[in-house]
Amino acid sequence: MLHLVLFLVFGAICVAGAINLLVQSHPISSALSLVVVMASLAVEYLLLGAEFVAAVQVIVYAGAVMVLFVFVIMLLNAGVEERTKGSRVALILGIPGVLAGGLLVAWVLIERTGTATVGLGALPGFPKTIGNLLFHDFLLPFEVTSVLVLIAIMGAVVLASRPEPKNPEKES
């Protein structure tokens, strides 16, 4: 019963935060509603028993990534965006497309998925087991990901740094 209530409440908060992200016109409001989405998703992960993923979600997403977003919004001083009217072609093609896509998703969800429940308090995603998987079965992807993150850091530094003023004496 508690599981059902928690799932419904935080799922509703999650979807409501996502809708609020789209409705708000100022980027800061959107960023804060994205934080709400991340935090409620962490609770959903806990309900699924994924303890470690929930902690990583809060620390990396709601912490680091969103601080980055808020920082850039402050830096760019981005104001309220002005809306333009959508095109007629998008309206004519979009509504049947959305209906067809929704029917397809509903059919796949109903026909093709199995069911599995998890008891409240059961935590199969214990950090020890995740760490074992990460450093035994997935050691090569882990190392490749570290290289990827290193390249991303260097790319971000190069892109965001101010271009150096021309200094003829420094050139060899």
């Binding site: 994924a50 470690f52 993923v53 990583v56 979600q57 990396v60 997403y61 680091a64 990534v65 980055l68 977003f69 850039v72 830096l75 760019l76 199969p124 995603g125 087991t129 995740i130 998987l133 990460l134 079965d137 997935f138 992807p141 990901t145 990827l148 993150v149 991303a152 850091i153 790319g155 971000a156 530094v157 190069v158 892109l159 965001a160």
Partner: peptide
């Protein structure tokens, strides 16, 4: 549990993507 390990990889890639995307934006 392999899905959870893959979710962690996706989180890492999302952080890298956000850093590079915001750098390009600046």
């Amino acid at each position: 549990l392999h899905g959870q390990v893959f979710a962690i990889f996706v989180i890492t890639d999302a952080a890298a993507e956000a850093a590079v995307g915001l750098g390009i934006l600046i």
